[in-house]
Every structure is written in structure tokens, then in C-alpha cells.
């Protein structure tokens, strides 16, 4: 069997706060192949960013990976020493954030910052690093890169800063780019530019992308495969077409119903009732059960496992288990 680029196995990450244990990620597993563009979608607090930070090992106190593995090319990077991790972070796996100022230092020129990333991870000379920085800025569509390298982050517009951050993240040609809501703070026209840029760079450089967003439009635009998260778990996963045209988890169905129609039908929206879950007190059964209109008795008692609904689509919802039994029953009755 060929080695997977990235395998996340049964990841559990919690924040041990004064109020108690905030269970942010609760047994998440997924694979990422070379060149794949994987979307992770879910409401705020569903554990998307914490998943990304766990993979990068940049969780802040009091966040801890409690258990699980993150295998990068077969090697578990959860347990390797920080010194080893530094060779991977920013070089093999890079991350970009919603707010570019998270990665950019306001007191250094953007040229300096991109060069620094290059010098840290490659054997390039200072001069080569500068050339590479200019090349990268050119690649991400920053005009007059020779001049721009001398500018400070605050002298650039929001969209431009986002490009600089992408240039920095990609300067060492990582295998994986994790993009955590990279366009959420941007205007639609600038967002379109950045998404287009990411698609172009992905094709040219061939890296895999984990695209984290709460925006179903961005996901539909960018991703081949999608994971829908709820309460720190994957409630459904599959190809983009399967998730959008054949959602099989009640939460995903609810999400699809609650967005306004793109053809302007002005039909009344059907919201998901209730409020988001409290990660300090997770329900015993299905995490979505308190908000689910179709919850059954078993939903309150036991957590559903993910089952395959098609060869490229799985969902963790008792409804699908019930369907399987019913169909099996029908078959039996026939024979």
C-alpha cells in the first residue's frame, strides 16, 4: 500500500479551563492525499481551527492533544520532539490564517519575513532567498515585488497582506497547505482573487490543501472532498457533489436548507432550531440530537458510527443505520 500524505487518527484535543474541560475535538479521523483539496466546514466552535492547530502543534495553553495520531508520510508528528517538528512546520506543512497579521510581524519588512522563512528551511544563500522572495511575491500577484519587499505589513491592503502570507507559506514548497478561513475577512471581490490564486498555485505546485471555512460557497468552489464537522467530530464526509446534492446527516441537511437560494426564490428559510452545543457538557448520544427534529430514542443514548452510504460518502447518523436495517428487512421479506 502506498503511504498516505497525511493521516489523522482518532484525534482528541481539549482545553483544560477553569470552567472545566472544553472538548474541542472528539475523535476526528481523516486522510489527505497528494494534491487533494479537502474542505472542512462547520459552524463556529465546531473544532475546525483546533484541528488545524493540533496538526501544526501550535495549540496555545491550556489546549492539549489528549490522544490520537497525526501521521505525516507515515510518521507520527504528535510525539516527535519540538526540534523535529520545526523542520516540518512551515516547510512541509504550512498554515495561513484569517488574519494575516497572525503570521506577519509588523516591525519587519515583508521581504525580510519571507526570506527568513526560506533561510530557516532551505540551504539557499541570502541573495538567493531575496530572489526567491521576489519570485514568490510575483507568483501571488503582488505588483512591483522589488519595491514591495521593502515595505512593512501595515503599508499594504488586506488582500495584499493575505497574498504576502500565502507567498510566505508557500516559499518552501510545502506538501500541505492548511488554510484556516483565509478569505473570511475579505470582500467578495478580493476573496475571489485569493481563491483564484490558491487554485492556480495548487495546480502549479501540486500541494494538498486543507481548506477550513464556514462558508458553503467557498467550499463548493474550491474542494473535491468535504468533511462536515459538528461538535469536534466528523458527522459526514464525501465528495463535494455527494455532500451538496445528497446530504445524509440531519445537520448537513439542515445547513443546506438554511442558506438562501442562489436563484433568488425568496422562499422562507428553514433554520436549524436550538443553539450550538456546549463543549463543556457534551450530550451522551448523537451530539446533534438536542437540535435534531428527527431524533429517535437511540440518538439520545448512543453515538452513531460513521457508515458508508455510497463508496465515496459516509455519515454518522442513526437514520442511515435504520435505513440499512429496513432495506435488509425488505430483502428478507421478499425471499
Amino acid at each position: 500500500m502506498t503511504e498516505r500524505l497525511l493521516e489523522v487518527k482518532d484525534l482528541h484535543t481539549s482545553f483544560f479551563t477553569d470552567a472545566g474541560e472544553v472538548k474541542a475535538v472528539n475523535g476526528l479521523s481523516f486522510n489527505l492525499d497528494e494534491g487533494e483539496v479537502l474542505g472542512i466546514v462547520g459552524e463556529s466552535g465546531s473544532g475546525k481551527s483546533v484541528t488545524a492547530y493540533s496538526i501544526m502543534r501550535i495549540l496555545t495553553d491550556p489546549g492539549t492533544i489528549k490522544s490520537g495520531q497525526v501521521l505525516y508520510k507515515g510518521r507520527d508528528i504528535v510525539s516527535i520532539p519540538e526540534k523535529e517538528m520545526r523542520k516540518i512546520r512551515g516547510a512541509k506543512i504550512s498554515i495561513i490564517f484569517q488574519d494575516p497579521m497572525t503570521s506577519l510581524n509588523p516591525t519587519y519588512t515583508i521581504g525580510n519575513q519571507i526570506e527568513e522563512a526560506i533561510l530557516l528551511h532551505t540551504k539557499r544563500s541570502k541573495k538567493e532567498a531575496r530572489e526567491r522572495a521576489i519570485e514568490m511575491l510575483n507568483l501571488v500577484g503582488v505588483n512591483e515585488p522589488e519595491k514591495r519587499v521593502k515595505q512593512y505589513p501595515h503599508e499594504l491592503s488586506g488582500g495584499m497582506r493575505q497574498r504576502v502570507m500565502i507567498a510566505m507559506a508557500l516559499a518552501c514548497e510545502p506538501d500541505i497547505l492548511i488554510a484556516d478561513e483565509p478569505t473570511t475577512a475579505l470582500d467578495v471581490t478580493i476573496q475571489a482573487q485569493i481563491l483564484e490564486l490558491m487554485q492556480k498555485l495548487q495546480k502549479e505546485m501540486g500541494m494538498a490543501i486543507i481548506m477550513i471555512t464556514h462558508d458553503l460557497g467557498v467550499i463548493a468552489d474550491m474542494c473535491n472532498t468535504i468533511i462536515v464537522m459538528y461538535g469536534g467530530r466528523a458527522c459526514e464526509r464525501g465528495t463535494a457533489d455527494e455532500i451538496f446534492y445528497n446530504p445524509c446527516h440531519e445537520y448537513t441537511k439542515g445547513l443546506m436548507r438554511s442558506i438562501p437560494s442562489i436563484v433568488g426564490k425568496h422562499e422562507r428559510l428553514i433554520p436549524i432550531s436550538g443553539t450550538p452545543i456546549d463543549q463543556l457538557n457534551l450530550p451522551k448520544g448523537c451530539y446533534f440530537a438536542p437540535r435534531c427534529d428527527n431524533a429517535m430514542k437511540i440518538c439520545m443514548e448512543a453515538q452513531p458510527d460513521e457508515i458508508w452510504v455510497t463508496p465515496e460518502h459516509s455519515a454518522a447518523c442513526w437514520m442511515n443505520v435504520k435505513k440499512v436495517y429496513e432495506e435488509a428487512g425488505k430483502e428478507k421479506a421478499k425471499s
Binding site: S157, G159, M160, V188, T189, Q191, A192, Q193, L195, E196, D215, L216, G217, V218, I219, A220, D221, A240, D241, F244, M256, I259, I262
Partner: peptide
Amino acid sequence: SLMSAVPVPDPKLARSRHRIPLEGD
């Protein structure tokens, strides 16, 4: 340009559409 930039939550439509990008700031 603005309307063409709106990301649509519909993968098939998204694949068939093309954006009319706005240059500059």
C-alpha cells in the same frame, strides 16, 4: 464583477461559472 465574485454553494454551478476579476484595489 461583484456578482460574478459571489461564491455559490452549488459545486456544479461553481465549476461552470466564470468570474470577471477586478484588478487592483
